[in-house]
């Protein structure tokens, strides 16, 4: 079965979505991330969607779910790299991703994660 790779960087997990996101792939990612957070005791998850050309309500819901479940598992999620056209479309669609932390790029996202771990 097709899967999106999850890399470990110290206390954090890094997910770079490089392929066209179909629904089953999104569901697999959600399950895989929950397993990996549990197995590695990760404190943060960084999801890079800079290669995604659209985010529809299904993918948006998956992102919100991942953010919610990682919070329950004591890890913070940061979504990075959203293309401007995707951001404009998401807001118009009515999907504001409440509760999902975002950053402009991977560097800023990592800063955000490190900062929030230090504060705890």
């Amino acid at each position: 079965m097709e899967r999106i790779p999850i890399l470990r960087m110290g206390d954090f997990l890094l997910v770079t979505v490089q392929v066209e996101m179909h629904d089953q792939l999104a569901l697999n990612l959600q399950e895989d991330l929950a397993d990996r957070i549990s197995a590695t005791a990760a404190r943060g998850v960084l999801i890079d969607i800079s290669a995604l050309e659209i985010v529809d309500s299904f993918i948006g819901r998956m992102i919100a779910n991942i953010s919610g479940l990682s919070k329950i598992m004591d890890a913070q999620t940061v979504l990075v790299g959203m293309q401007p056209a995707v951001a404009i479309t998401l807001v118009e669609l009515g999907l504001n991703l409440p509760g999902v932390a975002t950053a402009l790029n991977v560097d800023r996202g990592m800063q955000l994660l490190r900062h929030s771990v230090q504060q705890q």
């Binding site: 050309e53 659209i54 299904f58 401007p84 056209a85 404009i88 669609l93």
Partner: peptide
């Protein structure tokens, strides 16, 4: 932007 909106609606 119009492309992205259309493709998202299609999805």
């Amino acid at each position: 932007v119009a492309q992205t909106k259309l493709v998202t609606a299609v999805s």
